[in-house]
Nucleic acid binder design. Structure first.
Lengths: 335, 335
DNA sequence: CTGAAAGCGCTAACAC
DNA sequence: GTGTTAGCGCTTTCAG
């Protein structure tokens, strides 16, 4: 293994100079910098991560807690994770992957052992058990998702309340007067995951603001459940002309169910999805949708964390403004 | 921060004794062990990961390279990843997540900097560019997937060749005499990802062994592509009575397409999927399937790696035997 | 602009 | 069965 002393000898400087060339923490003459850089390259030197962490009190590692539970859409989680990893690399950090299962103990472990400098926590519930811990931890953290009280935390998410409202606004603008929300599975509401609740609230509030009929229907993420729900809606609400789907795995199934029931999309029923753009684009009927900007959320989360690590203050709450893209699944009502 | 000297003082022993209590690398009297354990608990001591890595030359971290490319099914990747993390924890290791994008540089970085003790690499291609590097690296690695030449490597995967054959055997056993394979997207074959090729080979070989008609059809992972392909198959092969689907995102869409074309599943057409069990179980028509045992593969991969880290020899190649579960999508042909 | 040297917290000989 | 101590490789004062 080649170490800093080897590089120093090779470049005819002291080890500290090599260190400073690497960190840029003090000015180095162009000549030495080049000589050292060349020696590093030539010898293939890589600083020992452990030694560096010990001496500098910085591991250059972030911990990411990823959920994998019923009702959360795995591809979206993966989009977050990849975005976090890529952004972390931009800041010269690596990412340690923790499972939800590890719970508070896992967070405490990586924080207290100095394995990670900072934490990113996904899938936060309204009254998440990990929050007191995160507040007390000496290391900075960012939550993806919104708990009931964000005081003293750093949280980021899509503004799902606005997203729910945006969908309704779009449909009302097209002339629809009766809408239904096909939401996340019941468990997701039961465990008080913020995003499901917030979408529902935004949806309901917007509908009542516009004075139109609106109902909310949690749905299991299977094609069968989607079909049964659609059939029931058609039976119970014969004047229904639009639905909002906030349940990634079944967005296509919902459209399909309407078609099987003899309702054209968007001819008879308009469908707006809240889901990642790539999912909406690829659907058989390209879907009008409010994007879940997983990439941007992951990126911003890491940026916030880096800012905190640098000692800067950051807002408790960052909500991304929803963006609706009109595609082929929505249309105006016949007069 | 509480350090080992604090614990030592509190328990009235030397630092090394605390260290040995933790590692179990030499025998300690029951009395001291308990006293030390209690001090650790009481003070909330956690060894500093960096210091430990520096002194012991072991970081207790594995690196996992996860793919996220077109044609690979994200939920399966996540299943692997979670299984790797959980198993690693069993061995007191953490997992660093690298993206495919980082490529060889990423592997070299975590290996040379001693950030990771060992590597798990997923989505290996037949002639993967990373293989020479892995062979030359001083750290052990395990590949999930099969390159053309496994000499000097440690590879693990489902035996996809056998999986393809098992599907055909099952269908032939039910009396089918004409089968089609609906495979992965064309790109996957193009970049010579082992699993797609191997399934195809096993499928084709088994069909010819049984003397039945067999065709192979790569397919884009969209419902539309699935429907078009099914319609074409029905048109071009009117006597087709069975298909094997090796393309997770469209397993349901294929069944659906047959039904729309007026063919019952399994009444008129039998369908066997190669996909994770949970996907097959939840389909509207529960699918007869050969499982992709992501959990087991991830677990075994880590076990192999730990064995290598302990200096044991392990086989170059571990192929898991496919397991077919009969569900509602296959039936015998009418006489 | 550069060097010397004192740790960072832990492990693992080496002693007894 | 336990203690002493010399590093592990790097960063960062402190000096010049």
């Amino acid at each position: 293994m080649v170490k800093i002393a080897d590089v120093a000898r090779h470049a005819q400087v002291s080890p500290s100079t090599v260190s400073y060339v690497l960190s840029g923490k003090r000015s180095i003459s162009e000549a030495t910098r080049l000589r050292v850089a060349e020696s590093i390259r030539e010898l293939g030197y890589r600083p020992h991560a452990g030694a560096r962490a010990l001496a500098s009190n910085r591991s250059n590692v972030l911990a990411l807690v990823a959920p994998l539970r019923h009702g959360i859409h795995v591809p979206v989680v993966m989009q977050f994770a990849v975005s976090v990893v890529i952004t972390a690399r931009r800041f010269d950090h690596d990412v340690l992957l923790l499972t939800q299962e590890e719970g508070e103990e896992g967070l405490r472990r990586v924080a207290d052992s100095a394995l990670a400098d900072a934490l990113v926590v996904m899938d936060v519930e309204l009254h998440d058990a990990r929050i007191p811990l995160l507040r007390s931890l000496e290391r900075p953290s960012v939550l993806i998702g919104l708990p009931a009280d964000t005081t003293g935390l750093t949280c980021i998410d899509l503004d799902f309340t606005a997203a729910g409202a945006t969908c309704v606004d779009h449909l009302v603008g097209l002339g629809h007067a009766s809408v239904a929300l096909i939401g996340s599975p019941p468990e997701v509401y039961a465990r008080e995951t913020g995003f499901a609740r917030r979408t529902e609230e935004g949806f309901t509030a917007a509908a009542s603001r516009h004075g139109i009929a609106a109902t909310v229907h949690p749905c299991e993420p299977t094609a069968t459940a989607a079909r049964e729900l659609v059939d029931r809606l058609l039976r119970e609400q014969p004047d229904l002309t639009a639905v909002v789907v906030h349940n990634e795995p079944i967005v296509e199934a919902v459209v399909d169910a309407f078609q099987r029931a003899g309702r054209g999309v968007p001819a008879d029923v308009s469908v707006v999805a809240i889901c990642p753009d790539n999912l909406a684009e690829r659907a058989t009927v390209p879907l009008t949708s409010v994007a879940i900007p997983a990439e941007e959320v992951g990126e911003r989360a890491v940026e916030l964390l880096m800012s905190k690590l640098d000692g800067h203050d950051v807002p408790d709450l960052t909500l991304l403004v929803p963006r609706l893209t009109s595609r082929a699944s929505t249309a105006g009502t016949a007069p």
